[in-house]
Design a protein around this nucleic acid. Sequence first.
DNA 1: GCTGAAGTTCGACTTTCGCCGTACTATGGG
DNA 2: CCCATAGTACGGCGAAAGTCGAACTTCAGC
Lengths: 110, 110
Amino acid sequence: MARYLVQPPVEDIRLADVMRALSEDVRLRLVSVLADGEFHSCKPEEFEVGVHKSTLSHHFKVLREAGVTTTHLDGRNHSIRLRREDLNARFPGLLDAVLHELASRQAVTG
Amino acid sequence: MARYLVQPPVEDIRLADVMRALSEDVRLRLVSVLADGEFHSCKPEEFEVGVHKSTLSHHFKVLREAGVTTTHLDGRNHSIRLRREDLNARFPGLLDAVLHELASRQAVTG
DNA sequence: GCTGAAGTTCGACTTTCGCCGTACTATGGG
DNA sequence: CCCATAGTACGGCGAAAGTCGAACTTCAGC
């Protein structure tokens, strides 16, 4: 039985919430991993940010509640993905600008 | 004797700092007023956010230190302005996306 | 049903943040 | 020189945020 965790509908996504969600280094690195637009498992191994798994879970919640990501639940496995279309519809150009910076950052640091 | 308050050079503007600066309602309203790109006096009357003038000063400092605004000092008068060119150069499309949302918000609320 | 794996939830701690009020600084004008 | 004006700096307070560790929940597999 697959289902999705609660998240704000597109029209309720607030700019301040999105900006705040994307104002933290750990979460920016998570988004960096999610930049390909695909679903990713929520395993700490996938996201090599040096925080405890409960902290990671907290950050995923912040991203989801801000409307930045969507979380799909299937069995014991949670999958997370960026809400690209929704964010582009709500704040055109915003996510692209952020992803562009994250990409160019990775090009530098390896 | 006119001069400028200290601010980060373009290349040192950090995404997380800009996002955080723009993640707060009061500061978003300040940016909304500054959206025309012109210099504005720092008087509380110019920015009708219901906070104490010392709080307002604090928010201006946050914006300036994040690299969002530049502050010009002439005599007793401080003037503040968006760093449009710098932000566009550093994070193309980011500021425009934010300003677009702020503008469409004003169109709704009057 | 037991066990292990994947993640969440909760409590506690520490740091940061927004806010105010007061004191302070600097400048322009009489 | 004195005073009013325009703002900053500082101290304190309560709320929010990031972190961890431990306990809990849910499900797959045996």
